[in-house]
Design a protein around this nucleic acid. Structure first.
Lengths: 149, 149
DNA sequence: GTTTTTTTGCTTCAGAATAACAAGACATTA
DNA sequence: TAATGTCTTGTTATTCTGAAGCAAAAAAAC
């Protein structure tokens, strides 16, 4: 999936939603798209400053808020990082597998897990509005590397 | 479950582990036990200062680190808060239901959900070492209240 | 073309967490 | 019990994360 294609899709969704995909928002979107794993707000800010020297923390956080509202990104709560979602056509809960060795993050959308969680909550009379499901550990390629040592 | 009973159990586990349940650690433990939901480190610090005026952020964070190592508390990643666990005899992954209305947090330990997550990860070749499973929404009693309006 | 809404610029501040080093308390064992 | 080593706490500073508030600018609506 090329960055340009992601940008085009994002722009289209903004049009539909009557939201404005401004220059700054697009730049932050592209920076996120260039990142293979999650990236912190302040690291994003450093990168944004290359083309927007006046950028301040509020600049980034406002862009991140916007991108979150549009469903373009997920926040990784356990690391305070942000991750571009590649399937943002509809909002969806996700499960994240975060590799502590290489930093790679894999995004999953398991219905069984999702349903199990909702069911579990409803048994307690709890209505889920949003959720955070994250695992830390080792990804396949890091496990392979480790076993070769 | 009374606070004294929790303290006794915690002290016993520390003895077994050869860890020291010092005054400060016990005080922080008790403050956590007095809280019905999660509580932030700095709010905890404010409360601790009542009996330990010299306490500083490091005081709290060190105590929290210790209590985490012993398995006495969970961190709520999505709110940067800490929660006393009432079943700390063995370390275990937990699922948290966090009510955004009243702040109540319910801790669950569902094996099916747990197993589903591990299975899902292993299908991707991912080995889970620790996890964060949190839901935000409305608890039963808040839903009931809302329906009476 | 004026008004209204949204976005951005800018400063400040609050909350969260760690680093580094000194000082004190505790445990060990000689 | 005195000396030693380890663990815990005191203290200061600093970094990271995130939000609040208000003015200026840009875009949309009328």
């Amino acid at each position: 999936m090329s960055i340009e294609s992601l940008v085009t899709r994002a722009r289209h969704i903004c049009d539909v939603n009557g939201a404005r995909f401004t220059t700054i928002r697009e730049k932050v979107f592209r920076l996120l798209a260039d990142t293979h794993g999650g990236i912190g707000a302040y690291e994003l800010l450093e990168q944004l400053k290359a083309s927007e020297p006046a950028a301040k923390p509020a600049t980034i956080y406002r862009a991140l808020d916007f991108l979150t509202e549009q469903g373009f990104i997920h926040k990784i709560e356990s690391t305070n990082a942000f991750l571009l979602c590649h399937h943002f056509e509809q909002h969806h809960p996700a499960q994240l597998l975060i590799c502590d060795q290489c930093g790679h993050v894999e995004e999953l959308h398991s219905s069984p897990l999702q349903q199990e969680f909702v069911k579990l909550a409803s048994e307690k009379g709890f209505l889920i509005q949003r959720q955070t499901v994250e695992a830390h550990g080792s990804c396949q390629s890091c496990l392979k590397k480790a076993s070769n040592d």
